[in-house]
Amino acid sequence: MPSTITAEKTALRAAALATLEGLSSQDRQDSDRALFRRFLALPQVGQASTLLLYYGMGVEPDTKTLFSSLWKAGKALCLPRCLPGNQMEARLVQRTESLIRHPYGMLEPGEDCPRLEPAQIDLALVPGLAFDRAGGRLGRGGGYYDRWLAGFSGVTVALCRQAVFFNALPRLPHDLGVDLVVTETGLYGPSHSVPLESGA
């Protein structure tokens, strides 16, 4: 029943957050390096012209370190901007100085950043507290990405620390997964259920 799944997801969110907060700074840095190396090496990233990223904060991967590499590679980068009603939009970002602080604490594009439609974006990097082998995602519960991804037809990718990577996560009908889950040691998803060889 949905109520049971909802309760299970709430408990998993608390457990995943506690696990992530328990990682040392060095553990997070080592994890970030491995995740970013694999992400930048993905052929889907190489083929994408416009990408939606997120500005990692707190226990999330420090994704802002990806920005310069992708800009140097000639990529156009967007970041999400929160809207009323738990909605979001993607706005083009050409420099981090154009970001502003949202009341929730994260950095997001300002009104001066051009808005892009989902159809204009080739690949979206999707955040989450935990992911599973089939691309299942455990978000923070706001539903922002589920609503935006419902209208997105490009490639979806997640960066997941091995410490919060599960064989299977509970899902409700409206929960949308991702095409590819990148961990420190492998690549997973509906078509990638076998981990890559170390160093691949």
Rank of each mutant, 00 (worst) to 15 (best):
G128S: 07
E108S: 05
Q162N: 14
S193N: 07
S198I: 09
C78Q: 12
V164R: 00
Y145R: 04
S31C: 14
V178Q: 02
G154M: 13
S31A: 15
A130D: 04
A7M: 11
L51G: 04
D62Y: 09
G136S: 10
S191V: 01
G142W: 07
L116S: 05
E60Y: 02
L79W: 03
L77D: 08
V194W: 05
P109A: 03
M57N: 08
L51W: 06
I100L: 14
M57L: 13
K9S: 08
A15R: 14
Q162S: 15
Y144V: 04
G56T: 03
Q120R: 13
G189F: 00
K64V: 12
V45L: 10
Q26H: 15
A90D: 10
G139P: 11
L52C: 08
A73F: 04
S193F: 04
L149V: 09
D27S: 14
L129S: 04
Y145V: 05
K75G: 02
A11S: 13
V155C: 15
A168S: 14
G199E: 09
E184S: 08
C160V: 12
D175C: 00
R38I: 01
G85W: 12
A18G: 06
S69W: 09
L159K: 05
T183A: 03
G136Q: 11
L79I: 06
A48M: 06
T185G: 04
N86T: 08
E108V: 08
V155G: 03
L40G: 05
